[in-house]
Amino acid sequence: MSQLSHLDRDGQPRMVDVAAKPVTARSATAAASVYLNEEAFALAVEGVSAKGNVFAVARIAGIMAAKRTAELIPLCHPLPLSHVSVDFDTDAVERCIRIRATCHVSAQTGVEMEAMTAASVAALTIYDMCKAVDRTIRIADLRLIAKSGGRSGSFVAA
């Protein structure tokens, strides 16, 4: 059975010691979806929300969140991110904004949590910017869709 890496032999939380691991290039991409009503979706897509350009603000929020992941998630290592991108696709039929966040780093540990944090905070920012016209907004499908680098190698979600 696999062991959880953030627990010691006594089941107590611990930060994983990565000192002996080599520095390697690593990347991770995460995704999330935000479903809105017709009015909120239109405002977001047209860039005319009362709070400003939804996509620009959500992109900045996601990038800033990736950079602060170690402050938000207990036991995460602070990482010197070399790149963060947050991109959006829209689906008018489902009134959905799909978020894709990618992070790159050369480090001793992976960057999955940074990508997941970027996607989730971008989704929350879209919610915040659109909630005045839609209280039924739904955030869904937050997940890791790909990673590369490190001892465990590459992963691509099916």
Rank of each mutant, 00 (worst) to 15 (best):
R14Y: 09
A157Y: 10
N37S: 01
P80K: 02
G47E: 01
E71G: 14
M113I: 14
C103H: 02
I60W: 02
V105Y: 07
M116I: 15
V86M: 03
S33K: 04
V93L: 12
T29L: 12
F41L: 09
D128Q: 05
S106E: 10
L79C: 10
K21G: 13
K51R: 05
R59L: 08
C96E: 10
L43W: 02
S5W: 03
T136G: 05
A119S: 10
A92K: 11
R98C: 14
F41N: 03
V18H: 08
R95M: 10
A19L: 13
G149A: 05
R68W: 06
D141E: 14
A32S: 11
S82C: 12
R98W: 11
Q3P: 09
A58R: 02
I139S: 06
R100I: 07
Q108H: 13
V84T: 12
E46N: 07
A42H: 10
Q108E: 14
L36Y: 00
A32W: 05
I139F: 07
T29A: 15
M129F: 01
I99D: 06
P74Y: 07
Q108R: 14
S27K: 11
A50N: 06
V84Q: 06
D8P: 08
A122D: 04
M15T: 10
A115I: 09
A28K: 08
G11W: 02
A123S: 10
V111N: 10
R135Y: 04
R9S: 15
T125G: 03
G62A: 01
V23I: 11
D128P: 04
A20D: 15
A101S: 08
I126F: 03
G52W: 05
T69C: 15
A50Y: 03
P80C: 06
V111Q: 08
A25Q: 13
R26Q: 06
D91N: 15
Y35F: 15
I97C: 10
R151T: 11
V57N: 00
R68H: 13
C76A: 15
R95W: 01
G52Q: 08
S120C: 13
A101C: 05
A50H: 08
M129A: 03
A50G: 10
R151V: 12
V34C: 06
A66M: 04
S120N: 13
T90Q: 13
F155C: 14
V105G: 07
R138A: 14
I63S: 05
A19V: 10
A115P: 11
T24G: 15
S49F: 00
S148K: 09
V156C: 15
